[in-house]
């Protein structure tokens, strides 16, 4: 199925969990926050939350800023 991650379309397996997506993105173990269709997904739900086709995912972190 197709989802949109940080503005880019991405082909992923059906029933992919948020935790699996984080791993696939090479971001495992990093401090990040995730929004699915503009709703925050708490870190505690990454393993149980299954993505659906068309989901818009934002994965963010902290960078230098003023």
């Amino acid at each position: 199925m197709e989802i949109i991650v940080n503005g880019k379309t991405r082909e992923v397996g059906e029933q992919l969990t948020a935790a699996e997506l984080v791993e696939q993105l090479g971001l495992g173990g990093r401090r990040l926050a995730m929004e699915i269709n503009r709703e925050i997904l708490p870190r505690s739900q990454y393993s149980s939350f299954r993505l659906s086709a068309g989901d818009r995912v934002e994965v963010v972190h902290a960078i230098g800023g003023g």
Partner: peptide, 13 residues
Amino acid sequence: TVAIRRTNIGQKP
């Protein structure tokens, strides 16, 4: 202060 931005996907581990 820090800014919140999209992660760079495919960042070096």
